[in-house]
Design a protein around this nucleic acid. Structure first.
Lengths: 114, 114
DNA sequence: GCGATACTAAGTGAAATAGCTAACTATAGC
DNA sequence: GCTATAGTTAGCTATTTCACTTAGTATCGC
């Protein structure tokens, strides 16, 4: 649990920027080169590259260079971490309101782990 | 869609810090005062207060002061925004994954994109 | 009223973030 | 080999973040 914390730091940090979220959304439709990804943004390429680097260093995307082109693709597993954290939180605060009901109706507690 | 983006910025930013995530987790078990929340952290109170302020300003928690004590409580609805964004993303790339699987299992649809 | 408690305000500083330009490397195409 | 393209490196700046200390305000309890 502790080792996730550090990852979550950088992942949430990465997600905190609209440019980077937009890149992820774009990559959700399929892989793309850095140049293609950069096009919609009114930003110098080196600036944009920092976002790509950041996304890769926290594991949200994977990239590989073929020739002079760097191809980027999303890494869904990484976002599962966020999903997991969020699910935990939801369980906590929903559990607080639902606990009584649950105890009365379902004595068994199920844990959907990854 | 645009107005969500700004909110997501500050929410993800807030979640990017382990102290703030820990506060949320603690608050998931129920409301608490600033002092109670601060106790586990080896941090000066003014520093800690900034985290509280940040969590409140992005809407993840609500606080009210009664007497000299400020009580904090979580605001689950706010995290639903994150949940929504994440769900959208999942839909995107799961859709893609499903499509790929379909291509692999059903050679009827010809699309040599790999 | 007076001291202790629970924050709050103000000011400092190191480090990270997010952008820029200019110059460079490596590949593709002719 | 020369030129254009795609990305990279280096170095600069402004802003934000995250912590600190010191001092102040506003209750609470006696």
């Amino acid at each position: 649990m502790e080792q996730f914390s550090h990852s979550l730091d950088s992942i949430f940090q990465a997600l905190a920027d609209p440019t980077r979220r937009a890149v992820l959304e774009r990559l959700g439709h399929g892989p793309a080169s850095v140049g293609e990804l950069a096009m919609p943004f009114d930003m110098a390429l080196p600036s944009f590259m920092k976002h790509i680097t950041m996304l890769e260093s926290c594991g949200l995307i994977r990239t590989r260079k073929s020739g002079r082109v760097r191809h980027c693709a999303i890494d869904p597993q990484r976002l599962a971490l966020v999903d997991g954290w969020l699910a935990d939180q939801r369980t906590l605060w929903n559990g607080r309101t639902d606990r009584l009901e649950r105890l009365l109706t379902q004595p068994k507690d199920k844990d959907p782990s990854a």
